[in-house]
Design a protein around this nucleic acid. Structure first.
Lengths: 219, 219
DNA sequence: GTCTATAGCGAGATAGAC
DNA sequence: GTCTATCTCGCTATAGAC
């Protein structure tokens, strides 16, 4: 609680300092500054996914980026902020890309679009997905609520699709909320076993999962 | 490998010392010795599940049990052995209980039995399940392989059921392995949202999931 | 069988030189 | 903008008293 307030204050301060610095200078000669921060986030993403948030030290992240540990604190107020930013960026990207899906002509088409989108997006960002599911508990309460709210907006999209198909008499679903949970868990599960050099292409996997999804909702 | 042998040797040593002490004395007044080890495992299970293996300190486990940190090392050679024993015990329990399921009269009945068993068992041991999925990466290679092999034996059971139903013309399944992965992910997902005080009983949840499973395999 | 005490190490984070 | 140096803290694990 106290730690939380302290953290928010620090995050605000850091943001202000960082923006002021960028807008105040016209030079662009030393481009490492613009690329260091993304590289820190990339390294943190990969290391957190591989070893777990708690198991990764700031020193490891720094080594991976090629800077000293102290340098990290020019770009983030602390380790927790790094995690939160990764999760928030991931969830926002998920919602943004979902919003770009074209309006489907039918609930069935909308469900297929969602199925293929979910598999593709989650596969492409498997590290972020893994962190999103595993490290939520390491977020302080306020941050946790924000990420959780974004996740629920994503689930709500699928629920709406299912509800429409049910109302139109196309789907047979005993419980819309449970069906949404079940389908998302099933689709996300692809990440636990799929390998690029396996016997199936991702498109083929999409096809097979779509068949199972379609049958599961009784269409 | 070395660590494991070391652990067994030490556990044996400890057992011998302990027995010698008890048999040498007639008293039984201080019974804490028999209960301390299980209590350590219980505490570790709960804390690992809640905060993650790397985030939990031996001091926290000791505090939870009500002993000093140093005392833990009378019952386990190190922290990693604690994790491995929890995972192994869980997986063995899963396989043992699966083996007690009565022979089903048909592949459809066998699939229903599996579905309900999986939901019930995984719900009852959610902490161990969570650790099994999250903390595998914290195991050293040798330990990892052992747990992984047990998991594959469990999956093989479901694949066999699906294959039989497919051969009998009861199921329509484009790919048996993918269907097994998909169903297990879907069923395990119950743990992420189910609450004892929610609107649905676990039996009702089993019913609803079984309907979805049955339709997904085309039966 | 549990305690206190501590060795030895590495963590997160900060200060100030350049 | 990055470095070196360092503060303070908590960790795993061990030693030895009782």
């Amino acid at each position: 609680m106290l730690a939380r307030d302290c953290f928010i204050a620090q995050a605000g301060l850091h943001l202000r300092l960082f923006r002021g610095h960028v807008s105040g200078m016209a030079r662009k000669k030393n481009s490492s500054a613009e690329t260091t921060r993304p590289r820190i986030l990339d390294a943190a993403l990969r290391l957190f996914a591989r070893h777990g948030y708690a198991a990764v030290s700031m020193r490891q992240i720094a080594t991976d980026v090629g800077v000293q540990a102290g340098t990290l604190y020019l770009y983030t107020p602390d380790k927790q902020s790094l995690l939160f930013e990764l999760l928030q960026t991931h969830m926002q990207g998920l919602l943004d890309e979902l919003a770009t899906l074209p309006e489907a002509p039918s609930p069935l088409a909308a469900l297929e679009d969602f199925t293929r989108f979910h598999i593709r997006f989650h596969r492409a960002r498997r590290d972020a997905v893994f962190i999103s599911y595993m490290e939520l508990r390491n977020l302080e309460a306020e941050y946790f609520r924000k990420i959780e709210a974004m996740r629920q907006r994503y689930e709500a999209h699928l629920e709406t699709v299912l509800e429409r198909g049910k109302s139109a008499g196309l789907f047979v679903i005993p419980d819309t909320k449970l069906a949404a949970f079940a389908l998302i868990a099933m689709l996300t599960g692809v990440n636990t076993w799929y390998r690029e050099d396996g016997r199936l292409s991702l498109t083929r996997v999409e096809d097979i999962y779509w068949q199972m999804v379609r049958k599961a909702v009784g269409a």
